[in-house]
Write a protein that binds this DNA or RNA. Structure first.
Lengths: 206, 206, 206, 206
DNA sequence: TATGAATGAGAGTTCATTCAT
DNA sequence: TATGAATGAACTCTCATTCAT
């Protein structure tokens, strides 16, 4: 029919992402996913064979899409200054527009880091353009050339990612401490980008 | 009895923290908690009346203890330089020695931020010495006096907390990207403290 | 098509026999049968309209073939000695080369004897040459003429069939009791025939 | 309460035997067993942890009881004549009064002989008085002393057991062939014992 | 304060069967 | 004659919670 744009399979994946992101793996209900996808519960098992299988499929899909978006960033030769400007911006905007992605990955990161690690590793291996080592090599070179102060690429990236991602998970915490509500609108994220870029550039560039 | 060092109640709380931290609220099993605490499942309901009640009790206890440890930091008059040195150190060390705490709070932050917010707010209100506003007032003053570059105390704290906490949740992610395993031993956390303090001081102090 | 040697229908029947014999009616899976037959599940219903229908078709086919093979035995005028020699031999050899048949019938015999009875009765009625009564009449005559000691033809046949068929179902039991494995090869069945024929002739002939 | 004679556990076992014997493992319904036992479905899993576990427990119990009853037979020093008289009688009477036992074991014998074998072997090992080898040793001695004609104790026992047990499983088959209904009452079994003992003694004693 | 037994509601999963093509 | 997708009913199993003692 004309109004059925997406396949059942895709509808299930979309509904599952929402449910898993909202309640975690254990808290998610297969029944709820099926209803939200507008299909019979059994179809879900027909396509994904188990709740766990569906979960992994969602994770896979969502991570692959994410990496596809991030990969362009690192390909061209960059100065560390450019990198520290573009990465947080992209990262924060990506997360801001995909809250379900952030939550899903957050859950998994806490609960079974090994799993998400291997999923990511798998995706990275499959993306020939995005080899992990190049990036870390580049960072090392930056340091060797005296462009950045941090010698260890792992610490370097941790600083970058931490500042970029924290707003999405830790915001409530800072809200509680400060006693003030912070709207998670575009405005907030714009200010967040500014602050992060500023700290990173002043803090890590030589 | 004399040979029973911890009360059943405390044993339950301890076991519950482990279980909730490991599997989240929905994934945790009351049965497992009871067995780990060495008591009968019914006792758990006798003391805490429901799984939810037990969960809140654990959260309460664990957060209160955490804040008690953090509060000392801010009481004395500090320079921003001192603050940016001491806070990440304490924070990272605290988290490193209480992984269950980090995971529990992480879960809750993702799943129902409102809940953990109100728990934290409650604790803070009860701790007369640790009023949130003082800290934020202090930060504002630091900026007014030209000591730090970040005008917004929320952004300021987000930067601090983000860099401090990320190692615990995001580490696997950076591992996957970099393709290198990072041991989470004392050594690693020492290096992490150094890097974070360095970035924060260079990035935010004027 | 030319390359398709067996019709779908026959492929289904063959696969179904294997599956029903291996797992019984309730344990058999329509899906498994279809896959084994190399056809789509829906085809199975197209041909046999239900799992039950397929089961009955298999039973029918398999029993009909069996009786066809047995019937020759009784047609010619026989002495009881000849009968007691030939019947067990044929029976045991038939069962040894059709293990699925034995299991299928065994299941049905235990679970709904009425069903298999009526199937057999139906087949027998349709085979004009193999009227049951003749055989029983013959046995009665043997007794009347003082050739066999057993007066009741039912008991007579029970003894014959029991000794012939038991090896196939009860063998594991005797193995367990005796603690020794008995290979179910041609050799074993040859020895079994000898023993059975011996017992029957000595035990029932006058 | 006074009217509750049996424990839930025993009630479940009894109901399960009936259901498994009637429909086989795959056809049996946990729900049905629970209802018949007058307990909640969940209790069944509380005691036996799975349908499979319950099945094995039933098998175990039923087989152990059976062997307990049979074991007395072989302990005293017997002549083969005595053995061939008493064993079929006991065996047939036992089976006649425990039809569920026969069906259950029959199913298992057909479906997974290995399982029932190991169950039986386990029971036999646990019954120090009933070592399998003694019986087979005795049979061998009988032959050595010229008392029986069958040299192979396995064949000997197969003949004995086959004739004893067949009435219970194969009766419908003979009924179908003969076209006559055979009542499975005490009378029938008495006649069956007579016939079997007669065949065995004439057929195997020297 | 403590326990083993019990329960109801629902969870994930399976399966024979049907529909649209 | 053939198929992939779809379905509803039922199935095994789980789990928070309560009861009797």
């Amino acid at each position: 029919m004309a109004e059925k744009i997406v396949s059942s399979r895709d509808a299930i994946l979309a509904a599952a992402l929402r449910e898993f992101a909202a309640r975690g793996f254990a808290g998610a209900r297969v029944e709820t996913i099926a209803r939200a996808a507008g299909i019979n519960k059994a179809m879900l098992f027909y396509y994904f064979s188990s709740k766990e299988g569906l979960y992994q499929a969602v994770l896979q899909e969502v991570m692959a899409e994410f990496f596809k978006k991030v990969q362009g960033l690192i390909t061209p030769p960059l100065t560390p200054g450019e990198f520290l400007e573009r990465f947080p911006k992209l990262y924060i905007e990506l997360c801001a527009s995909n809250p379900d992605f952030v939550r899903l990955v957050g859950f998994d990161l806490i609960q079974n880091p090994d799993n998400i690690c291997s999923v990511m590793a798998g995706i990275i291996t499959r993306m020939s353009e995005f080899k992990p080592h190049p990036l870390f090599e580049v960072i090392r070179r930056w340091h060797a050339q005296g462009q950045i102060s941090e010698a260890d690429p792992v610490q370097f990236m941790m600083n970058v990612v931490a500042l970029s991602i924290f707003s999405f998970i830790g915001r409530p915490m800072v809200e509680a401490i400060s006693g003030m509500r912070v709207a998670d609108d575009g405005d907030f994220y714009a200010r967040r980008v500014t602050s992060v870029v500023n700290v990173l550039k002043r803090g890590m560039l030589k």
